[in-house]
């Protein structure tokens, strides 16, 4: 993971294109404006009427602004956003807990045993990162039907957890290998069982790797669309934030007094998390991007 850490080094002396000061800054400012315009439109349009959105999209005069549409979107009968938050947070928490509970111990075994079969086991898990989940979900529907779990919360949580296993195990096993085995041997001598040794000695030392995975899983579960849409389906009445947005927005796609407030409510929590934890989020999501 060495290449992935966010650059923190004071590498001021090294700038191949020393695009002399102001030119560089001006260019970056223009780019930043282009990057931020959609977000600006999203935020201000959530407080404006359809006519104002279309005729004066960029203007921000106080007499145009109203809370009415945001309030309507928050109490939309087609999609209860508060329930959407609750359902999504439930999924995020369950997947994170289950993922650590399952991936932690198996990674510990893989990292501490040198037999060939444990190396093969690691390879098997890592091979899972190569399967695109949009395509995997199709046969999974039939596996879940067979198990009687299709359209249920446990079915969805188990599948989402499975998707987190390959990269978690890859990351955790690699991390545990950097923790001296003498620590757990000492604890074993004192009579602690393997599970105890792992959870009370090794696990607390894995914090950086666990934080990375929790961030990655939180964002990928929150933002996932295809899996909840197909596994939970409209029939179950269970909407996550994204499937709820799909249900609410695709129906009224040109009524912007519905579209913008709903989208704003959908992204607001993650944007707040991002602003609060930028460095962690950036390195976590970038680590995830490299899983391929």
């Amino acid at each position: 993971m060495s290449a992935l850490r966010m650059p923190r080094v004071a590498s001021v002396q090294f700038k191949p294109f020393k695009a002399k000061g102001w030119g560089r800054i001006a260019f970056l400012v223009v780019t930043s404006v282009l990057m931020l315009v959609p977000m600006y439109l999203l935020i201000i349009s959530a407080f404006k009427s359809q006519q104002d959105i279309l005729q004066h999209p960029f203007s921000l005069s106080p007499d145009q602004l109203t809370m009415e549409y945001l309030r309507k979107a928050a109490t939309n009968p087609d999609f209860n956003i508060l329930k959407g938050y609750a359902v999504t947070i439930l999924f995020v928490v369950s997947v994170n807990v289950l993922s650590v509970a399952l991936a932690g111990p198996v990674s510990y075994v893989i990292a501490r045993r040198s037999e060939r079969r444990y190396r093969m086991l690691l390879l098997l898990f890592v091979a899972g990162t190569f399967i695109p989940s949009q395509v995997l979900v199709i046969p999974v529907v039939y596996t879940l039907k067979f198990l009687g779990l299709m359209g249920t919360i446990p079915g969805f949580v188990l599948f989402e957890t499975t998707l987190t296993l390959p990269f978690s195990i890859f990351l955790y096993a690699g991390y545990i290998m950097t923790i001296p085995a003498s620590l757990d041997e000492a604890a074993a001598v004192d009579g602690a069982g393997k599970h105890r040794v792992f959870w009370s000695i090794v696990f607390p030392l894995m914090k950086p790797a666990v934080v990375t995975m929790v961030i990655l899983n939180t964002f990928s579960v929150w933002n996932d669309f295809v899996n909840p849409q197909i596994i939970l389906g409209p029939g179950s009445g269970l909407y996550t934030v994204t499937t709820g947005v799909y249900a609410a927005v695709s129906q009224y796609s040109t009524d912007y007094t519905v579209v913008f407030p709903t989208l704003l409510l959908a992204v607001a929590p993650l944007l707040v998390v991002f602003v609060l934890l930028q460095r962690h989020v950036i390195s976590g999501l970038t680590a995830g991007a490299t899983k391929g």
């Binding site: 996932d224 959908a266 992204v267």
Partner: peptide
């Protein structure tokens, strides 16, 4: 600047698509 360049990646692709279709439709 790094944060500004990175932030869209935080949003779900579904929301990004709806947002841009409201902008470009």
């Amino acid at each position: 600047f790094r944060i500004v360049l990175f932030y869209p990646h935080v949003l779900s692709a579904l929301v990004v698509g709806f947002l841009w279709s409201a902008v470009l439709g």
